[in-house]
Design a protein around this nucleic acid. Structure first.
Lengths: 207, 207
DNA sequence: CTCTATTATTAAACACGTTTAACCAACAAA
DNA sequence: TTTGTTGGTTAAACGTGTTTAATAATAGAG
């Protein structure tokens, strides 16, 4: 690796470390690009050269922690014998617990990334796609064991359950009064509804 | 009403009309507060005095149209004899059709409002609460007719179904290639899953 | 009517994300 | 080594949302 390339990587790392430090310490809205540049010992323009904009910097600075949390959540998931509901809730518990460490920070991260036009957030988009795929495969497995109806579309089920998880997460990040347990309780019932349905079984409909 | 109050209301209206015009014409990100102020014939500072910030102006400028669309959707909803699924999808079709008129505009509106801290977006928050309440009552009605299980929590069902609607809407606003019909198709299956569940009926579980 | 208090309005300034244009060290070719 | 080029870095400037401090018009009290 040439001299130029190594020093470039070094500055990139300096900026990333400074960003992580200040984002966590002061929150992403109270620390400016100039602050981060000063902390890293580079010029503000350099930050933009390396990361395109503040949101992209936020994304790169934080996605690894999220990835590790997902990995840990999946690794500690109850085994196949356990109920689908229990396994899903385990992952949700891990994630909500993680976000609870710095709600303000992750609220801003998710706000600034989820609504951008497609293609703007490569890291988090990839994470989501991988997770949805893993999750769809999980449901397919359950199908083979007869725990999920053969007719149910696994991809739509995965994305629907994720929608429920995500909506509760949004509310969780917006409302300081909402404890993780309250959020999990709400999600638990929503997931149960999606798994078992809310209408009576066939043939029992009407009066 | 005193002279001062009337002129204040007049400027407020001037700003609102200018904002609606420019937001629709150029999109909310390409038209500046200065543009709006110039169009309205007032100073930029005046805009902020009346509306606190650009997002609040966007919210006030647009929420009435949304409200009317909801009202029309509810008014034209199939009668109680129709299926719950059909009634929900009717509302979704009306709303997606409305948002389809200016996706970019509503994408920015929803992005800038949904993730703010609670209490920041009074108009849209009230709309959502009213709608969820109406929707919960609808599900309670279905319960009484035996079309929904007595044990199902109507509030959680309402909010879950809204989550599904909202997630598909997000994807719809983010992805120009996604047609309203594709979005509705996706949502239709997700709603069907939530209504009927994806696990086999009781007693049929396991192998 | 006069004087004071209130308040809608605004010009100017500010803060911050981002862009531009110039600089210069590293590299490649001769 | 010399020369020309590439590319990482940055000082300065820009655009825009927002704040501040001053202005002027109105309302109310005497």
């Amino acid at each position: 690796m040439s001299r130029r390339e190594t020093t470039k990587l070094e500055t990139r790392q300096l900026i990333l470390e400074a960003a992580r430090k200040l984002f966590h310490r002061r929150g992403p809205e109270l620390c400016t690009m100039r602050d981060i540049a000063r902390e890293a010992g580079v010029s503000p323009a350099s930050v933009v050269v390396h990361f395109k904009n503040k949101t992209a910097l936020l994304e790169v600075a934080l996605y690894e922690d999220i990835e590790q949390t997902i990995a840990k959540a999946v690794a500690t998931m109850p085994q196949a014998g356990a109920s689908l509901h229990g396994r899903l809730m385990h992952i949700a518990r891990c994630m909500y617990g993680f976000y609870d460490n710095d709600r303000e920070l992750y609220r801003v991260l998710i706000r600034d990334t989820t609504f951008e036009k497609a293609g703007e957030n490569p890291y988090l988009t990839r994470q989501l796609q991988e997770y949805l795929q893993f999750f769809g495969a999980l449901i397919e497995q359950e199908k083979e064991r007869g725990k999920v109806r053969p007719g149910a579309d696994a991809r739509i089920a995965a994305s629907s359950l994720f929608s429920l998880y995500f909506s509760v997460l949004m509310e969780f990040l917006r409302s300081p009064d909402l404890t993780p347990d309250m959020a999990l309780g709400w999600l638990s019932e929503a997931v149960r509804q999606h798994l078992t349905g809310i209408v009576p079984p066939e043939g029992d409909k009407g009066k």
